[in-house]
Design a protein around this nucleic acid. Structure first.
Lengths: 210, 210
DNA sequence: AATTAATTGAAACAAACGTTCGATTCCTAT
DNA sequence: ATAGGAATCGAACGTTTGTTTCAATTAATT
């Protein structure tokens, strides 16, 4: 049973340090010393630094993807075969992620900042890692989005999905900053309110005239 | 005169490597070997690795900020004292950046990816570096945005600026990826077309009902 | 209780890190 | 032509890096 706590402690600390200092800015010794774990424990449990990153990413991304798809499933059921409303689709995409990013007990705050970093990473290994997870969501969400936006040409459709991802990722990864920038006017902890704000922004952008 | 080429070579290579591998993922030896420059040249011309980053950032951000403000100035003149139309304001903010990100002769392609990374960096030194530059743009653009969006409550205003930044940064930093994701349907080189797309997305999002 | 497997511990490895140094070369101004 | 400052060079400094090894310890199985 000791292995579970050690493994989890490594992943928790790695998640936090990867998020705040970056992956290459974090040494294995940084992780093990803060986790109060022996240096060799990382290679025993994971094999390499890179595998720690994979484990950290998958641990959160698998349930997140599942939650998104379950939510879209539910909205599909509610619409009884008809097209799901655009804000609902976006909410299914954005809601679970933003909720995770504000749940510190699940460690999501750090994870989402890490994810924001990884999205910017051109390294093929890391890109593959993310793509493998997002491919699943994309296959389910794309047809629904297309159905909700039938007037959009493919070029515009893809670009707007790109913009959507940008607004979403930036909000998840960096919701602390807005508190400073806005002089305390904005509250990152008002999760449901902020989801509504993000959804209405994105939905309007997606539906804009071309 | 040799100093100029050495200094520039270091900055050019550093910009590219910082962008693709990250700052802490890039060693001074990586830079000097690729720039075909002696290892000690970095410390002779810049003093430290961190100062190289500062120089790289300022070199592009100073003219970019100037261009944005000049463009908004022009639009203000065109509107003859009245409020500048929202899409115009956003175009002044987004246009120069997106044009730079697609001008490889100016090295902007790499710089914008670097900027995308730096935005995600919680390190106070780096945040200060960016804030010092963006503060100038913000002071000029905020009043104009508020004038164009008088119906927005401060909370919603700040959040939407946050979303705006997200969509913008992600598009600048990662315009390569969309070509792959869209299977060649989207062309990152259609700069003016893509500016229009981004502006109309953001403008619609900013004007959405609350 | 004895034996095996799983986990942790401390120490070492070569390689790479940012930085510094003093000597050498290059350019320019007298 | 030559002195003097600017620029480049090769080499080295002490740390830190990811990884490996093997003995010691703990947990599980018989």
């Amino acid at each position: 049973m000791a292995q579970l706590t050690t493994k989890k402690r490594i992943m928790d600390v790695a998640e936090q340090l990867f998020a705040t200092r970056g992956v290459s800015g974090t040494s294995i010794r940084n992780i093990t010393s803060r986790a109060k774990v022996n240096l060799a424990a990382v290679h025993y449990h994971f094999g390499s630094k890179e595998s720690v990153l994979e484990a950290v990413v998958s641990r959160r991304l698998v349930p997140l993807t599942a939650e998104r798809m379950a939510l879209l499933d539910e909205y599909e059921r509610q619409s009884k075969g008809g097209a799901v409303e655009l804000p609902k689709i976006i909410e299914a995409l954005v809601g679970p992620a933003l909720r995770l990013s504000r749940s510190s007990e699940k460690g999501g705050e750090h994870f989402m900042r890490l994810l924001g970093r990884l999205v910017m990473e051109p390294d093929v290994k890391i890109q593959r890692l993310l793509t493998d997870h997002f491919q699943l969501s994309l296959e389910k969400f794309k047809p629904q989005l297309e159905k909700a936006l039938p007037h959009l040409k493919p070029v515009d459709f893809f670009w707007r999905v790109h913009f959507l991802v940008g607004a979403m990722v930036h909000t998840m990864a960096d919701s602390e900053r807005i508190q400073i920038v806005s002089d305390g006017v904005c509250n990152p902890d008002d999760t449901e309110g902020n989801i509504k704000r993000l959804v209405s922004f994105i939905a309007a952008g997606m539906e804009a005239d071309t």
